[in-house]
């Protein structure tokens, strides 16, 4: 029987799963859209994954990451819950041990991770604004009625450059509309947008950082050949796209789970039967003090399995005890 390690990345735009074999090779990967419903999409993805694996297998360990990592963790019984930066770096280093710069652009987040001597040396992540991330590209593609998958190839056909304001997604959009109304080519406008996005990314995140080879580009946006080309023009260097660029977070989580289970010896995974459980997230405003915390409660078949969001720890502490006794 094969032993696989499961990595789960519940992001704002996509939910990704990776099955890793004992030799840290990707056995199977899955990329589904979160569509604002992390619970539903994770259950569907797990069911799909189970179906596609034809051989007999067991799950040796589970790791979760992404902005929905906590939620995913209580649903599946994770062995490791890790932030995206560490997960992405671990996956990148596993793929390319001499990576020194990691560019990652996802749905809502963009990050740059600087690696020196095989460890994370520095990183930056976009602040409150999501300009220049995947969701913005998604929106522009939809507005222009171009499938997002083909968006980048339009940019490659551009003949002359059009400058688009990249500072803010709202400005960029109105700039694009102005340019389009004056008769500029759609290919040139899309290329201009790719360049604006790269410029904005480097101004915001790359500021003061030395971009050294090898440069890895990962995250959903790495599929966009227009952006890749714009990065390469900007750096004057080759940018590498790892084979599993779209699921690197999940891959990192799986690797971390494998390491964790090596230490602890056992996994907390609930098993694939969990897809038959009914999970619900409920939120309420705690009225016990003037903080009015928004408490989130996760119910599994009607039973609360986790709560968070409270400042005092009254609600989250409650389930910690429960899960400890049940574990």
């Amino acid at each position: 029987m094969n032993t696989f390690y499961l990595g789960i990345d519940v992001g704002s735009v996509s939910t990704n799963l990776v099955l890793l074999d004992e030799h840290a090779n990707v056995y199977k990967k899955l990329y589904v859209r979160t569509q604002g419903q992390p619970i539903k999409s994770l259950k569907e993805a797990l069911a799909m994954l189970k179906q596609t694996v034809k051989t007999d297998f067991r799950i040796g360990g589970v790791g979760t990451t992404g902005s929905g990592r906590q939620l995913a963790s209580v649903m599946v019984g994770a062995d490791v819950v890790k932030n995206e930066i560490t997960a992405h770096a671990v996956a990148a280093l596993n793929h390319c041990p001499d990576a020194r710069t990691i560019l990652e652009i996802g749905g809502q987040d963009s990050k740059i991770i600087i690696i020196r001597e095989g460890i994370v040396y520095d990183f930056a992540m976009n602040t409150v604004c999501a300009a220049g991330t995947g969701s913005f590209l998604d929106r522009q593609a939809a507005r222009l009625n171009i499938p997002i998958e083909a968006f980048g190839s339009y940019a490659l056909q551009s003949k002359s450059s059009v400058r688009i304001a990249g500072r803010c997604a709202v400005f960029a959009e109105s700039d694009m509309i102005h340019k389009q109304q004056t008769g500029q080519n759609i290919e040139d406008i899309i290329n201009g947008l790719c360049e604006a996005l790269v410029r904005n990314y480097l101004n915001n995140l790359g500021k003061g950082k030395e971009i050294k080879d090898s440069i890895l580009f990962q995250g959903g946006v790495a599929a966009n050949v227009g952006i890749v080309a714009a990065f390469e023009r900007e750096f004057g260097k080759k940018v590498m796209i790892p084979e599993h660029f779209d699921v690197m977070g999940a891959l990192g989580a799986a690797i971390l789970a494998k390491e964790e289970v090596k230490k602890t010896g056992t996994t907390h995974f609930y098993g694939f039967e969990l897809v038959n459980r009914e999970y619900k997230a409920k939120s309420f405003e705690c009225q016990d003090c003037s903080n009015r915390c928004e408490v989130i409660e996760i119910l599994s078949n009607g039973e609360p399995v986790a709560r968070w969001g409270d400042r005092c720890g009254k609600w989250s502490g409650l389930t910690k005890e429960q899960s400890e006794t049940s574990a």
Partner: peptide, 11 residues
Amino acid sequence: FNTRLEAFIDM
């Protein structure tokens, strides 16, 4: 906020 903080401590 927590993601950035965790990642920083991890690093």
